[in-house]
């Protein structure tokens, strides 16, 4: 565990806390893509199948359980909580997210480290996570206005990805056999998807104005 990896995990955790805070405090999920949240729930469940087969550390197990539980809780709130579900921007959240699931799974069947159920689901989760933010970015683009907590949620998610890249660079330089092509290449693609959002986030921060995305 290096400082970049820890910072990445903490910003990831923080992003989820910000999202939960928004939903809990405002009883609203406006501006949040349920499709992206469902993709994250699939990502965590598919990736952490090793929860039952490999023990790495208490920290690792704890974080995995937190990520699975929080992503399922968010999806549950957006679908079934009587007040939260009413604020869902259904007509803006129209991205065909099943295509992403299908394409990621097909890619995982072709590109994986080993041809086992666990490894294929692991690769699938990596590919799906890389593109899972797309429905959210499309929703923001369509609604134009971004409220503070939603903006911070996406900012922390992007920061988590950026820290993971620094973590891989650090590991590549310090560990003799660190080669993880599937995770690293997908991670770079995933981070690149945030570039546009970051650009507008920093502009609004610099001008001390409300975050707005161009139509």
């Amino acid at each position: 565990m290096n400082i970049f990896r820890l910072a990445g995990d903490m910003t990831h955790l923080l992003s989820i806390l910000v999202l939960l805070l928004k939903i809990y405090a405002t009883k609203s999920c406006s501006g949040i893509s349920r499709k992206t949240q469902e993709l994250y729930a699939i990502v965590f469940v598919a990736r952490y199948l090793d929860l039952f087969t490999d023990f790495i550390s208490v920290y690792n197990t704890f974080m995995k359980v937190v990520f699975i539980a929080s992503s399922l809780a968010i999806v549950w709130c957006m679908r079934f909580h009587p007040m939260v579900r009413r604020s869902y921007d259904r007509e803006l959240d129209t991205f065909r997210h099943y295509f992403l699931v299908g394409a990621s799974f097909a890619l995982a069947l072709i590109l994986h480290e080993k041809f086992t159920v666990q490894e294929i689901f692991w690769a699938f989760s990596i590919y799906l996570e890389a593109v899972a933010i797309l429905p959210q970015l499309v929703l923001l683009q369509r609604s134009g206005n971004v409220d503070n907590l939603t903006g911070q949620y996406i900012f922390f998610l992007g920061a988590y990805r950026a820290f993971y890249i620094l973590n891989w660079i650090y590991r590549y330089l310090t560990e003799p056999h660190f080669t993880r092509w599937i995770a690293c290449v997908s991670g770079v693609v995933q981070t690149a998807l945030y570039a546009d959002f970051f650009y507008y986030y920093f502009i609004s921060w610099k001008n001390n104005s409300k975050l707005k995305l161009p139509a």
Binding site: R5, D54, I56, S57, N60, K64, K114, N167, A183
Partner: peptide, 10 residues
């Protein structure tokens, strides 16, 4: 060798 395939990241 086993250590290389252990997925220690989240």
């Amino acid at each position: 060798v086993k250590n290389q395939v252990v997925k220690d990241e989240l």
